[in-house]
Design a protein around this nucleic acid. Structure first.
Lengths: 334, 334
DNA sequence: TTGTAAGCGTTATCAA
DNA sequence: TTGATAACGCTTACAA
């Protein structure tokens, strides 16, 4: 197969009988050229099927007009909407967006293939990120707190969310509350736990029990099994994310106990499934799209040297039937 | 803010007191250098925090070792797993993967920022893709049939899937079958309709009714409303994708009629939700991860000049409770 | 074993 | 208004 080399401005210059700098001017719509030469160049370019070479332009201009979003993994219910939000903002402001996942892809950041990055990926080391920032990389982090002039953070209000979640259980009269935690390395998980602890301290009469989880369905299943083992009356459970809550449901579905009655459950994230499992899951909701939009706006602001402050994504409680009142509320009279 | 320029091989050369070509050789682990010089260079590089510049290397080598996946949108239940499949294969073979969506991002392909692309995106024009292929771009298409030496296709066996779906309804004794179609521009939709028509021709005694759909929940809702309007006894419905089937459920949930009893439903794609709605959705299943893996393998094969054939992703019927037997089967004796 | 130099496709400065 | 030319950071023949 003949490897047809792509036409460059040199070829256009030759075909149009002008110099390469003239070609460059014409292609970039400079005003200082005659309409005649401009047209001559443009039509030569069209005939040759010319497309600019991104690598060359990036090398010369030291910018690619590409932003990168780095994710832990591609699957997961949260990312889709978030990325669409980022994309819309990027395109509107004249940037392209590429999405990457996995350690290998980190090179796209360090090798300066992209002008800036949005990080939602445990596999980045915070020290590493600070070094990047030190080398003038522009970053927006969504999964950690990091202070540096070249870094902005757009964080979920995890603490508020977790507080809402467990307060809801307490208000409903529950006095035995299990917390199914997340990975220790997860920023979201540790922040959510802070919210839990805050409420726990204020409610010492409630029995608080932590079960280690992993943010995956399997963690929810294991937690359900442990709780079934020691079940001796109504209990409430806060799974630190919906994924585990779904695992919990799956396991409970095989038992006599019913969620919203014998066991009360709250999740976090409001993934699509939360509205479809039966009974519907009470959970903490936030706009994934908005999160993505904010992240992209922050990054572009940073690139344009605007003084932008860290942002926060607000959350709310989405009430559904997975939580009912405690059968023998010791707190309430009604 | 001081814009600290990144260290280049030139800086390393100076620091180590060697020429830039020596630096290049050392960094690329060439065997022809003394261990001593190699080490000298490497430690200078480390001290300067050197990272190669991707644009420069790409420009020089005329390859980036990056592959691109182009999607219609980032959300949607099918993509996550598929992308993880692609990623694994790419990384294993020494390529990076970037994911793009939207017309603007097409430039990453045309401007040769990536070595090849996997296309699952209506917004690419087939003629355009053929032109790219003609200019030596390597492509794998997942959403159309396209013949060119530089193009491979990895297609779902849509026709077989649709055939399985409607045959299942016919076998269960259904004699009034609605088909909720997809967008006319969708390859998957038109192929699935071919499967439907094949079965329809063989079963002229069945009443076949087409309702236009859009592959979105809203299309399923509208279809449900029309069917409710004219409901006068058991009917079966094949939604050409699960997304519409879920919309259909949502609408039906507000009525007296129950799915799997009064109305029987089959979808296509086996998205995660299909296993959680009640009753669980009978649908056409296939491995999204495998699809992604095959696509990446095909693309890398193409890049390495291997003679690879088009691939096909096989499908199977996932039976669940959304389809029951027709109440008065005219066909079966048992 | 190491250095020199050309070139990848652009942009941009300076002359003409 | 246009044209030479250097430079961006790297690889790689070829020379030393």
């Amino acid at each position: 197969m003949k490897r047809q080399k792509a036409a460059s401005i040199k070829d256009i210059a030759q075909k149009a009988g002008v110099s390469i700098s003239t070609v460059s001017y014409a292609l970039n719509g400079s005003a200082k050229l005659t309409d005649e030469t401009t047209n001559k160049v443009l039509s030569a370019a069209r005939e040759l099927n010319y497309t600019p070479n991104a690598a060359a332009r990036t090398l010369k201009k030291q910018e690619s007009r590409i932003l990168g979003a780095f994710l832990t993994a591609f699957d997961g219910d949260v990312f889709g909407e978030m990325l669409d939000g980022m994309k819309d903002v990027c395109y509107e402001k004249g940037y392209d967006l590429i999405v990457c996942s996995g350690k290998q892809s980190h090179r796209l950041l360090s090798e300066r293939m992209i002008d800036g990055a949005i990080i939602l990926d445990d596999s980045f080391d915070s020290g590493q990120l600070l070094e990047y920032a030190e080398r003038a990389h522009k970053l927006v982090v969504l999964d950690r707190e990091l202070e540096h002039p070249n870094i902005r953070q757009v964080l979920l209000d995890n603490k508020a969310g977790a507080t809402l979640a467990v307060e809801h259980l307490v208000e409903r009269g529950h006095r035995k509350i299990y917390i199914v935690t997340g990975p220790e390395t997860s920023f979201d998980a540790t922040q959510r736990m802070k919210g839990v602890h805050r409420v726990a301290e204020r409610n010492p009469d409630v029995e608080w029990i932590e079960i280690p989880g992993d943010f995956m369905k399997s963690g929810g299943v294991r937690a359900a099994e442990r709780i079934l083992d020691e079940y001796n009356g109504p209990a409430a459970v806060f799974c630190l994310n919906d994924e585990m809550a779904v695992g919990f449901y799956n396991r409970m579905a095989k038992t006599e106990l019913s969620i919203g009655k014998d066991i009360h459950l709250v999740g976090f994230d409001n993934i699509e499934l939360a509205g479809y499992i039966q009974p519907r899951l009470t959970t903490i909701d936030y706009s994934k799209r908005k999160w993505g939009e904010l992240a992209a706006e922050q990054l572009i602001g940073l690139l344009q040297g605007k003084a932008v402050e860290h942002e926060r994504v607000y959350v709310r409680l989405e009430e559904a039937e997975s939580v009912g009142r405690a059968e023998n509320p010791r707190c309430c009279t009604n």
